[in-house]
């Protein structure tokens, strides 16, 4: 076998995913009898609904990707990751609604806030390791959740009702221009995934993996591990902020539940379903989680979250490597089998 390492072959999976997801609304439109042209003009209810579900999945996948980079690749388990997401979502909402800022200004502001937040978390990084870091991040995020929920901020955040009525710029309004929103979210996800793959394969990314495996050894080799951790934190925070911004633009209201521990657990669950430290697992996990949640909620109502919790426990106990991780582990065993099967079909030369 020749070692073909061009960009297209290396990223075959994600590119096929990109193409399929781009075509999906049009194909689904055919089922309900609307032509691709109608879909282009944002008509057809079924495909619009599918696009909406897709956007939610992409947002969750972006969030889970950023979590996987932090936890799966670098080994920093943060229980305050939802804060990155929620700060961006609330900031977008407040900047658009209360401050009436221009859209691109809001984007810049949110990204800047993401970096500042990452630096705030990084402040404790050099001193605090392992479980204590988890505790500190949990504490910081809880404070944010409490502040969002408090009645003092009701004019800005809407307290426990949530932030409602955010004026979304017309050109990406999820009501009238949903296809465009869908394509933007998809493109952002694919671009982020490609960047992450490249990042993990780069020398910087390798050091991050080394930090996960054994931080003291990485230090001994002469790497200033703190700087690498800060870099990862900033990248992760920027990605989570992007997801949060999309969430704020897409959802009709921003509920404070995205700031609590439960949302971090959701991210953790997605990464766990997909496979910790696999990157592509985040996307697979987001699909599995959202579709499962959707189906359960439809048929079981309120008890769905209980079943989701049970699935979480089952995954922790019995499928610790997740879907992607398990497949990759089995691949060594299944590959010869596949080749034997193919050899039976193919004429031997």
């Amino acid at each position: 076998m020749k070692n073909n390492s061009s960009f297209l072959t290396k990223n075959r999976g994600i590119l096929i995913f990109f193409a399929v997801m781009l075509l999906a609304p049009f194909l689904i439109g055919l089922f309900e009898g609307s032509t691709p042209l109608m879909i282009w003009g944002n008509q057809g209810s079924l495909s619009k609904f599918i696009e909406g579900l897709g956007i939610e999945i992409f947002i969750l996948a972006l969030f889970a990707l950023s979590f996987d980079l932090l936890f799966g690749i670098t080994g920093l388990l943060s229980f305050g990751h939802a804060m990155f997401f929620a700060v961006a979502a609330y900031l977008t909402g407040i900047a658009l609604k209360t401050l009436a800022m221009p859209f691109w200004g809001v984007v810049l502001l949110v990204l800047l806030a993401a970096i500042v937040q990452a630096l705030l978390f990084s402040l404790v990084l050099p001193r605090v390791k392992g479980i204590t870091f988890t505790l500190v991040s949990l504490g910081l995020a809880s404070v944010f959740h409490i502040i969002v929920m408090s009645s003092d901020m009701i004019n800005l955040t809407g307290a426990d009702v949530g932030l409602q009525g955010v004026p979304v710029p017309a050109f990406i309004s999820p009501v009238t221009e949903r296809l465009r929103f869908y394509v933007i979210a998809l493109t952002l996800l694919v671009a982020t995934y490609l960047f992450y793959r490249r990042f993990v394969a780069s020398p910087t990314g390798r050091v991050c993996v080394a930090i996960r495996e054994n931080e003291d050894r990485a230090k001994m080799l002469g790497y200033n591990t703190t700087i690498f951790k800060v870099v990862v934190m900033i990248i992760s925070s920027l990605t989570a902020a992007t997801a949060g911004m999309l969430h704020a633009l897409y959802q009709p209201s921003i509920s404070p539940s995205i700031a609590d521990l439960g949302f971090t657990v959701t991210g953790l669950l997605i990464v766990l379903i997909g496979g910790v430290g696999t990157l592509s697992g985040a996307i697979v996990g987001a699909f599995a989680f959202r579709l499962l949640d959707f189906t359960l909620r439809r048929f079981m109502g309120e008890s769905a979250s209980f079943i989701t919790g049970a699935i979480y426990v089952i995954f922790v106990l019995f499928v610790p490597y997740g879907i992607v991780g398990t497949i990759r582990m089995r691949q060594l065993r299944t590959k010869p089998g596949w080749q034997r099967l193919l050899g039976m079909v193919k004429p031997k030369n």
Binding site: L77, F79, I131, T134, L261, G262, V265, L268, L269, L272, S305, F306, G309, A310, Y312, V313, V316, L317, P320
Partner: peptide, 16 residues
């Protein structure tokens, strides 16, 4: 780490 995640999940289920 999985223990940590398990207890977190159990806490959420218990709450539900």
């Amino acid at each position: 780490i999985y223990q940590l995640m398990l207890t977190l999940g159990l806490g959420t289920i218990g709450l539900q």
